[in-house]
Computed example of a mutant assay.
Amino acid sequence: MGLSFGSVLRRGVCAGVLAGLAAAVTIWLVVEPVIRRALVVEDLRSVHGGSSAPAHGGGEPLVSRTAQVVGGAATSVLVGLAVGVVFAVVFARVRGRLPGGNDVGRSLVLAAVGFASVSLLPALKIPANPPAVGDPQTVGRRTLLYAVVLLLGVAIALVVPALDRALARRGTSRPTRSALDVVAVVALVVVVLVAVPSSPDAVPADVPAALLWDFRVASLAQLATLWLTLGLVFGLLVERLDRRGRVPERVGVVAAGSA
């Protein structure tokens, strides 16, 4: 039994929503405690008349912290849904070229590539900062730099497989191609890390190094949770269909509007 495009897409939506929920739980349990520590630094800065304009202290906040957490969780689910749709479309196109003994393995490989290209690489170059770090006037520049690194990460994820296919057409052996793929990835990542300007924000002296480190690790944990959950759940959903009939190596649109 073949998979229609609608079947793949629905499983991507389901997996994306669950991945967003898992990421939201990670925000609540792992990221939020670090954010509250950062807000304490902002409040102390405000009390002592720090030069940096506080985003939290100095009056009642426009939106309560509880509302911010709930809004962040809702945003996480929406982001997960969107990523799940894109993930399903990409999986449908490249399933036959992904390594792995089954659809769970293939899905996890694709999730690992997605995490590395659109989450890990940007985080290495433009790392996340807690509320006590960052100048509001540089938000636009930071966002632009982050988007540039993200797009370059996607480009690397597209260029390296294309290189591998070109080498395969020339009869290059699998071990040699794998070695060249690794060299290409490392070289391109180094180029991105060196060529793209770093974040324009300096870390204030009153922000403990442990706080900065904990926040960046927690932020990566949130993203890793999203991608891991997406890859695992999506793979299991597709694999379940595979048990009910043979799934073709390339999933495509069987019929417009088919289930």
Results as ranks from 00 to 15, higher is better:
119 S>R: 13
174 R>W: 14
89 V>Y: 02
87 F>V: 05
86 V>D: 06
188 L>H: 02
81 L>I: 13
141 R>P: 15
171 G>N: 03
108 L>W: 04
184 A>P: 01
112 A>Y: 02
128 A>Y: 12
175 P>M: 04
138 T>P: 11
179 A>N: 07
194 V>H: 10
81 L>A: 12
189 V>C: 15
146 Y>V: 10
157 A>I: 11
102 N>R: 10
70 V>S: 14
103 D>V: 07
138 T>L: 11
93 R>V: 12
143 T>I: 12
64 S>C: 05
174 R>T: 13
62 L>T: 13
77 V>T: 01
67 A>V: 12
121 L>S: 04
99 P>W: 00
183 V>L: 09
118 V>W: 14
112 A>V: 03
177 R>Y: 06
87 F>G: 04
97 R>K: 12
162 A>S: 05
109 V>F: 12
135 D>T: 12
191 V>H: 03
127 P>N: 04
165 R>L: 07
109 V>Q: 15
180 L>F: 02
153 G>K: 00
143 T>E: 15
73 A>E: 11
166 A>R: 14
196 V>Y: 09
110 L>P: 00
101 G>M: 05
185 V>H: 00
144 L>Q: 14
165 R>W: 14
195 A>I: 05
172 T>D: 06
117 S>G: 12
169 R>L: 08
130 P>L: 11
118 V>F: 12
148 V>K: 11
76 S>D: 07
101 G>L: 11
65 R>N: 12
94 V>F: 10
149 V>E: 05
120 L>W: 08
135 D>F: 06
166 A>K: 05
140 G>A: 09
187 A>W: 06
